[in-house]
Amino acid sequence: MKEIVVLSGKGGTGKTSIVGSLAVVAQSKVLADCDVDAADLHLLLSPTVRDKNEFWSGQTAFIDAERCTQCGLCEEVCHFGAIKDYTVDEVSCEGCGFCARICPTEAITMKDNMAGYWFISETRYGTLVHARLGITQENSGKLVAVVRQNAKFITEREGLEYIIIDGPPGIGCPVISSLSGADMALLITEPTLSGMHDLDRIIGVCQHFGILALVCINKYNLNEENTHQIETYCHNQGVKVVSRIPFDNVVTEALVRGLPVVEYSDGKVSQEIKKLWRVVEGKSPPLQ
């Protein structure tokens, strides 16, 4: 079993569109959407939810006004500025429980957070494990870990070959939670200065955690000079470029119809994504 996580650093480079198409092309796999606070993969895969689960994580402090003597100690010790005028700002509270432990009249209790849902769904391309973090909830990294664990469990139980993970943008908590211990990171970039800057940081994260990284340049023809620079940069970093996908509005047309692009069209974009998967599987050599 191999776990492949699709990341980008910068948002909007095409992670979900490409994962949606890999879902069609790859045969023996489970899909996991680890972009839990803005999940979109379901819009391409039309899942039927088979199993919906609550995600309980973290706590929030509550002050009982009747018991509170307004001594102000809780506000004084809170490192997150979450208590003002003897009330808790639920959004700022990080659930450490410091206030509840030191309140002299035991007026503060910690309550568990229902921080979202996670789902096991069936799609026409196989099983999808996905999630929805509650609005303004924390602990996206923990929810990512739950999604990954379940995807792994199903993959092992059914004797499948791959877990394909649609990862979140950025380089922080949910990205590290999506990446740690994976077999390979497929990094989707675009030939813009922002895309290149962010690629450098996400490659840094992969190197930091010792994860093999492969790069796919999406919309490569938007700026071929930048594409060339990315290839040179990757070469110098010892990172392989496995694919160049042209810009084509057909990707958005397919999206509007709720379809992965490889199902909607057999044009250049679809052909490149099919080639990309053969390289990832080790059945074709990379571009460089």
Partner: peptide, 14 residues
């Protein structure tokens, strides 16, 4: 603001 809807976004918009 960063993308997403979780804690970094809340912190940035607040």
């Amino acid at each position: 603001v960063p993308p997403g809807t979780s804690c970094p976004v809340v912190e940035a918009i607040k």
